[in-house]
Design a protein around this nucleic acid. Sequence first.
DNA 1: GTCTATAGCGGGATAGAC
DNA 2: GTCTATCCCGCTATAGAC
Lengths: 200, 200
Amino acid sequence: MKTSGNTSRERLVNAMALLLWEKGYAATSPRDVMAAAEVGQGSFYHHFSGKHELAVAALSQNISELLDQDAGTVRSSPLEELKAHLLRPRPGLKGCRIGRMTQDPKVLEDPELLSMVEDAFRATEQSWIKMIDAAIKAKELPESLDSQQLARTLTAVLQGGYVLSRAYGSQQPMDDAVHGMASMLDSLAQSHQVAGNSTA
Amino acid sequence: MKTSGNTSRERLVNAMALLLWEKGYAATSPRDVMAAAEVGQGSFYHHFSGKHELAVAALSQNISELLDQDAGTVRSSPLEELKAHLLRPRPGLKGCRIGRMTQDPKVLEDPELLSMVEDAFRATEQSWIKMIDAAIKAKELPESLDSQQLARTLTAVLQGGYVLSRAYGSQQPMDDAVHGMASMLDSLAQSHQVAGNSTA
DNA sequence: GTCTATAGCGGGATAGAC
DNA sequence: GTCTATCCCGCTATAGAC
């Protein structure tokens, strides 16, 4: 589990970022990070005051990467874009870099890490809300929808998909969960279309 | 955090069951359990070979309790029963006794615990599938639905709701997620009803 | 900037007395 | 069945040399 980067500092951050994702915060020891980064203990405590400070830097990097991934690929229609985001490949067995943090006891005890996670979720939620509102404005989805509520339902499906995939040790449950949701969105859009035509 | 029960063994299992729920497996030490159960170290290692064995007994109890809760309250219609289960009160901040286990590194390393979790998820999934199929049979939901897929979407919404609630430190996201899903089910049922009538 | 040595603490379990 | 003493280990960090 070697990690790239030039300076010791970069190597440490990159290694921690990966380990946070794969093993979580509590389960990752300074030793693990040093080994992965191929960096000695002296360097570690020279560049960072301790595990917490390194985790902040690494989590920040993980969050940035994730939000970048969600940044818009333009699509034919708002609904298509929404579905494209929903159906984007998700490594069910690896888990979510951010959502994972919420189940880590040591993260819950750490206000700084916790608030970073919360902010990240707020950001993605806003992203969903924008897509939903755009779809409503384009008459692809009914006006009656509560976009904040639906945004949370969508986020929950993704986060829950990760939980199921880990429980079953398989990618399939994640795929089923998101496809089930996509089908429901399609039905919603179609019936709205039909209703719109009949009253037009 | 005292725990009820008569024999030391019972007290230990009850305490562990609660701690598994609240703190998880990795984060719960034998010391914690003994303190909560008000039982000495001698008793602990007399009744159980170690932490693992106690966890198996405690997790088994937690799973039984959860499955009992899901056991049927009879309702007016299959769809109503389905929604009633979906909207049942869920303590978002406390988390799911079972789903929580899937994010615990020490649980993932423990094949016995992991398979218990997997079995529990299979059981609840089957329960959802039955309710969905019943609703389809009663013509409340369209035949085109893939009941296994939808069951997983529903389970994911619940599990994801817990993740969101912990991230935000609030019950609200969980409630939003399930209500968003309930609304979609209603829309699905309604449009199916309409479509059914128009082609009748 | 990086190294090695050391330290305090808690996790998890064993030993043997009572 | 329950008690206390003890053990080994890894986590996290500090100290001081190079």
